[in-house]
Nucleic acid binder design. Structure first.
Length: 387
DNA sequence: CACTCGTGGTT
DNA sequence: TAACCAAGAGT
C-alpha cells in the first residue's frame, strides 16, 4: 500500500509546488539535463574509485570486453547473487572458453555443470543461444539491442547490458538494483510492478551517452553495495545529497512492493530404488517446466495435500513393482520459488535386470549427473538415514 | 499481465 | 527463524 500525502499538492498555486517526492503514477518529474549530468559525474567518480573486482569485469580503462564472457555472466546473474555465480562462471569459462566450444557441448554436460545454480531454463536457453550465434550469426553476437533481444534467454535487461558494456551503446539498463536506486533517489512510492514504467523513465533520463556501460554498471554496483534492500549505507553514497527518499525518511522502505501470495506445501514420496549391483535408478524430467531437463529420483506426484501413505504411493506411483521396500524416518524439505516441498523417501531393492524407463547409476558416479539441489538433498538423506 | 521458474545468503 | 531477496525471461 503506497503512502499518500495527507494533502494533494496544487500545481496551480505558486506557493504550493509539487514536491520532488511526488510519486503518483506518472507524476514524478525526470531530472533536467544539468541535474542528470551532475549525478552522472558523481556516480562515475565513485565508480572509478570503489569499483568491485569481478571475474567478468575488465580492468579499468581496458577496451570493451568480448561479448561471450559478459553474456555468460549476465545469464548466470539473472536473479542470482554474485557470490553464487562466481564458481559456476569460472568453471564454465574454463571448460567452454568460446561460444563455439559451448555450442558444440553436449546438453547433458551443460545441465550437469549448471546443476545447483537454479532456474534451469537459463541453461537450456544458454545452449540454444550459443548454437544460434554460431549457426545464424557467424559466431559473433549481434551488436544491437534488437539483435541481442531476439536470442533465446536474452530479454530487455540482458540485451541492454551487453549492448552498452560490450558495444559502448547508450542503452537503458534496468534491473532490480536500478529500480531500487531510482525509487529511492526520486522517492517513488508507487509499488512495483506498476511503478516499472516510471522507474525506467527516470533511469533513462540519467543515462549518459559517454561511458554508458560504466554508468550502467555503476548504478547496479551502487544498488548491490550501498543502496541495499535493507540498511542502506547512505553515508557513503555519492547521491546522498540529492536523494529525495532519504530526505523524506523513506529510503529504507522503498521500493514498495505488492504483497506476495503465501507458499503452499506440496508433499510426495520419493523412490530410492537400487538394483542388485547397487546402482540407483534416475530419470530425466520433462524438457520444460519445473527442473526441466534435469535428472531426478522418481517420485509420486507433488501435490498440495497431506503426505501420502507410503504403501499407497508404492502401489500407485512407483516406476516399477516393488516388493522389498521400507520408508525412511524423517522428511526431505526444500523450498522453491512458489511452494514448499516435503518428501518421504522409500528405499527399495529390485532384481538384476528390471524393465523400467531411466538410467542406473552407481552411487560413486552420482556427482557427474545433472541433479538439482532438491535431489541432492534426497541423496544425502538416503545415504544418512538409509544405510 | 500474472504466473512460473531455484537456490543460498542475509537479517 | 521465517521472510525477504538477487545483474529476469518466457509464456
Amino acid at each position: 500500500m503506497a503512502r499518500r500525502a495527507a494533502r494533494a499538492p496544487n500545481p496551480a498555486d505558486p506557493a504550493d509546488p509539487a514536491p520532488e517526492a511526488a510519486s503518483g503514477p506518472g507524476t514524478v518529474a525526470p531530472p533536467d539535463a544539468a541535474t542528470a549530468a551532475d549525478l552522472g559525474a558523481r556516480l562515475l567518480a565513485w565508480y572509478d574509485r570503489d569499483r568491485r573486482d569481478l571475474p567478468w569485469r575488465p580492468a579499468p580503462g581496458a577496451p570493451p570486453p568480448d561479448p561471450y564472457p559478459v553474456w555468460l555472466s549476465e545469464i548466470m546473474l539473472q536473479q542470482t547473487t554474485v557470490a553464487a555465480v562466481k564458481p559456476y562462471y569460472v568453471r564454465f569459462l574454463a571448460r567452454w572458453p568460446t561460444v563455439q566450444a559451448l555450442a558444440a557441448a553436449d546438453d547433458a554436460a551443460v545441465m550437469a555443470e549448471w546443476a545447483g545454480l537454479g532456474y534451469y531454463a537459463r541453461a537450456r536457453n544458454l545452449l540454444k543461444c550459443a548454437r544460434a550465434v554460431v549457426a545464424d550469426h557467424g559466431g559473433r553476437f549481434p551488436d544491437t539491442e534488437a539483435g541481442l533481444r531476439a536470442l533465446p534467454g536474452i530479454g530487455a535487461y540482458t540485451a541492454a547490458a551487453i549492448a552498452t558494456i560490450c558495444f559502448g551503446q547508450r542503452a537503458v539498463v534496468v534491473d532490480g538494483n536500478v529500480e531500487r536506486v531510482m525509487a529511492r533517489l526520486f522517492a517513488v512510492e508507487d509499488p512495483l510492478p506498476g511503478a516499472k514504467p516510471t522507474l525506467r523513465r527516470l533511469a533513462d533520463a540519467l543515462t549518459p551517452t559517454a561511458r554508458a556501460g560504466d554508468h550502467a554498471q555503476a548504478v547496479m554496483d551502487l544498488g548491490a553495495t550501498l543502496c541495499t534492500p535493507r540498511a542502506p549505507a547512505c553515508g557513503l553514497c555519492p547521491w546522498m545529497a540529492a536523494c529525495a527518499g532519504r530526505r523524506a525518511g523513506l529510503a529504507e522502505r522503498l521500493p514498495a512492493k505488492a504483497p506476495k501470495a503465501p507458499r503452499p506445501t506440496r508433499r510426495a514420496v520419493a523412490f530410492w530404488i537400487q538394483r542388485k549391483d547397487g546402482a540407483l535408478l534416475l530419470r530425466q524430467r520433462p524438457a520444460s517446466g519445473l527442473l526441466g531437463g534435469m535428472m531426478e529420483v522418481p517420485s509420486s506426484p507433488w501435490e498440495a495435500a497431506p503426505m501420502p501413505d507410503p504403501a499407497a504411493a508404492v502401489a500407485a506411483a512407483a516406476p516399477l513393482p516393488l516388493s522389498d521396500w521400507r520408508a525412511l524416518p524423517g522428511l526431505v524439505a526444500h523450498t522453491f520459488t512458489h511452494f514448499h516441498l516435503e518428501l518421504t523417501v522409500v528405499m527399495a531393492r529390485v532384481g538384476a535386470n528390471p524393465r523400467v524407463r531411466g538410467i542406473w547409476v552407481p552411487l560413486t558416479e552420482l556427482e557427474g549427473h545433472a541433479l538439482p539441489t532438491v535431489m541432492r538433498k534426497v541423496i544425502r538423506h538416503a545415504l544418512t538415514k538409509g544405510f
